[in-house]
Nucleic acid binder design. Structure first.
Lengths: 216, 216
DNA sequence: TCTGGTGTTTTGTGATCACAAAGCCTGCAT
DNA sequence: ATGCAGGCTTTGTGATCACAAAACACCAGA
């Protein structure tokens, strides 16, 4: 069918729906590193032709969320240790700045919200739910960074998250910890105290620690 | 034609050739902010059908190099002052880090090369060649940052350059200065002296100053 | 059992087409 | 002259198809 023959239930353009769904899947670690995708397979799953599937895949490749082999095959990326460390450094650089910019705007309502999200994070950890953990953890960070009023910077941080998605799955699927997120508590405490150096340190630690285990 | 019926002269895939050409054009400021593009027009210029034109455009939209209106029309972005300031802050953040990482690896051959490029920059300024100035200026920065051995970080910096391309054209087309790039000299001096704080400051100034004039 | 080659299938690429929606332009009425 | 309504044109979207190359499976020979 050409263009929206009848009114569709919720979504807009087909390629955008495919893109958003795949993006969320990758960012949340629902795909393992190196997982292969095919245009026809995607088209079949979303009940569209190859054209919108291709556009969605291209977009994700441009963002570094998918890897394109020389022969055109697409798969989730298998990152080298150097790459992982670099992306962790990027997270630190960007997210420390975002947190710092959010700090003067962080009111009590935001802190309450972060504490609420953080209890969900703890629940996911106790349930050993890797995907749920990644999702709620990113929600925690995004909620804070949204207060920074810096959309381009946040978009860039999300691009890094995207690139790390499959690797994070492999990481958190591997180590079986049950401790609640200590660094998140430090972040919240620093926000309450208006302690900028403490906030920067806490964010840097939170962002760096997990990935160092895998890459170190 | 389907796929490479006869051996082609230089290039690989059609969509990639279109993508790279457009990307260079945008990054170097050859397109004014708000300039409109059409898929059929691109296809005609590159002698391909709409399909590869669409893929190239999608990629560039994903990188923020092109703006997609709600009706699907594509044009180069017209940035708000807030957005320009944010992108300048991102440049500062990323490029200061890249320069810092390049510093311990910067040998004399690199410094010579930078000086050579910098004389080209000065020439472009004296010739009032806006596009040539942007191109050589970026070449100066990229040459330095390549030494940082941080491809993901460099890619992110280039994405910021891409987003600023049309705006930089508007900026440097407007102000008619003839002074040679003073900050580049400071960068080179700091590299020679192994002075990391001085290098960070010089890079931050160089990256920030021009855009502050437009956005301030 | 392993290796090499051959035929089949899968997969990405690009051209083309039909369709709808968004522009655009012209001309008429006030 | 100005505003608006009708059509005509331009433009993006998505489906489908042909084709080549890559991946795969299968089988025969050592």
């Amino acid at each position: 069918m050409p263009v929206r023959p009848t009114a569709e239930p919720p979504t807009g353009a087909a390629h955008d729906r495919v893109y958003r769904t795949l993006r969320t899947r990758i960012m949340h670690g629902e795909l393992a590193p190196g997982a292969a995708l095919t245009l026809r397979g995607i088209g079949k799953e979303f009940d569209v032709s190859m054209t919108p599937a291709r556009e969605a895949v291209r977009r994700l490749v441009a963002e570094g969320a998918l890897f394109l082999s020389t022969s055109g095959r697409v798969s989730t990326p298998e990152l080298t240790n150097e790459r992982i460390e670099e992306l962790a450094a990027l997270r630190a650089l960007l997210e420390v700045e975002l947190a710092s910019r959010a700090l003067p705007r962080a009111h009590m309502a935001l802190i309450d919200r972060l504490q609420s999200i953080n209890s969900n994070v703890a629940e996911m950890i106790s349930k050993r739910d890797a995907v749920g953990y990644i999702r709620t953890n990113l929600e925690f960070h995004r909620t804070l960074y949204l207060r920074a009023q810096a959309p381009a910077m946040l978009a860039m941080a999300e691009t890094v998250w995207l690139q790390l998605g499959p690797t994070m799955r492999a990481l958190y699927g591997r180590l079986r910890r049950t401790e609640p997120p200590q660094n998140h508590r430090l972040i919240i405490a620093a926000l309450k105290a208006g302690d900028e150096p403490g906030l920067r340190l806490a964010v840097r630690s939170d962002v760096t620690q997990g990935l160092r285990l895998l890459a170190g």
